[in-house]
Design a protein around this nucleic acid. Sequence first.
DNA 1: TGCGAACGGATTCTATAGAATCCTCAGGGT
DNA 2: ACCCTGAGGATTCTATAGAATCCGTTCGCA
Lengths: 243, 243
Amino acid sequence: MTRGGGKPAFEPRRMPDRLDERHQLSERVAAYVREAIMVGDLRAPEFIRTERLADQLGVSATPVREALMILHSEGVVRWEPRRGFRVQSITARDVEDLFEVQAFIAGELAARAAQLLSAEDVARLRATHAELERAHAAGDTDRTERLNHEIHRTINRAGGTGRLTTLLNLTVQYVPRHYYGRVDGWAHASAHDHEDVFAALEAGDADAARAAMTAHAKHIGRLLVEHLHRVHAFDGDTEQSVS
Amino acid sequence: MTRGGGKPAFEPRRMPDRLDERHQLSERVAAYVREAIMVGDLRAPEFIRTERLADQLGVSATPVREALMILHSEGVVRWEPRRGFRVQSITARDVEDLFEVQAFIAGELAARAAQLLSAEDVARLRATHAELERAHAAGDTDRTERLNHEIHRTINRAGGTGRLTTLLNLTVQYVPRHYYGRVDGWAHASAHDHEDVFAALEAGDADAARAAMTAHAKHIGRLLVEHLHRVHAFDGDTEQSVS
DNA sequence: TGCGAACGGATTCTATAGAATCCTCAGGGT
DNA sequence: ACCCTGAGGATTCTATAGAATCCGTTCGCA
């Protein structure tokens, strides 16, 4: 019998085109795997066979391995040397923790931004946010997500890009950006929370900005956890894995 | 003329034997690069040429590339696709930030540990700590560092291993474990701070444990920043890079 | 029947080669 | 003097092959 247990694996889906061909294969594969895990095509504690995945994606084993290395250091998969990479199981507590840290870092960055952003900067943020609301009303989740990302990016990059940004990205990347389109109430919550952040930024009130951003992140975290429960994405939920 | 500017690079030093041959080359190379950066053999914003490094270490380019991928996602080096990997510059603010996050996470884990560790567990911790003090008195920094690591490990793993632990490791790994031996006052500070942590854990007081551990991490962070300033490891300090 | 050792297939891991890309520099035109 | 263009070399990036390792199974033996 074959070594891993011979599961038919998951149905091949095409590589993400958000990351088009000017990006490296490693990054595209990593994005693909991240999404496959979040969607449920890959479940813990299943092994990810490099060659099989390489065949499915039409690439060689090397970039697949590189992608899994990255994912390993992000905690998405676990690398067991000379045995392979297996998707890391995730609990509701893990997601909460992830957003707890995210809230902490994003809060700190927002506090710094409050002392650095000009009135015009905040005005631009508000304009982007208005677009976001229009996109959401029009049901364009893709555009909604992109605008949301842009808002947070400007705030986070206000205080220069450093280790905090890197760490924040690590916690954020875990859930693919466009996945939020599936989360009920996400756009609504963002629309509501952002205003508090903008007001604090405008007033130059660092503590208020920190508080508002922290609350926002935790809010989104709660919504995501509820959603994942509904989809049975967690370990204990209904559909348990193999054995 | 050669592309990177043709610096003679850094003098070859042997691979870390802390990670012996049962580990993968990728990990060993990563550890090597981490240390080379911390020690100053590699400085921002210098490129790390994969083949050159591979030759120096006597391995091929593939594991080197894998190592740099990992280091990239940790924020130690920056990957510029189709151009190469360059060591990320680091400011004093970055180190402070790193330890701020580390303090937050370690504090949370300590708080959880306070509710989970038994009296015997804490007794064992105290025993290990006593060994640590003896090792330090004997001037055995290697053993001191190892015992210190063991103490923190038991505390962090008390609440089961999850995403928080992964994130904590990311912030911790930035500075190689045995580097602390060079930091003046490190062992002394640890000896002092640990007692507060133990007392809180023994009392099962989560908040006190969080506070003690947070203070400890920030304390170490301060010491490290001072040390790095003395060694001129930061960007603005005396010895600036190339141009 | 129960247990240990060796075999065989599968997979990871490292090395190496070739294609694609980027940078530098020289040369010619405006 | 300035810009554009193209050649050449160096380096990254992907693919592929071979060595090392692991797992499941079977065979031999008590």
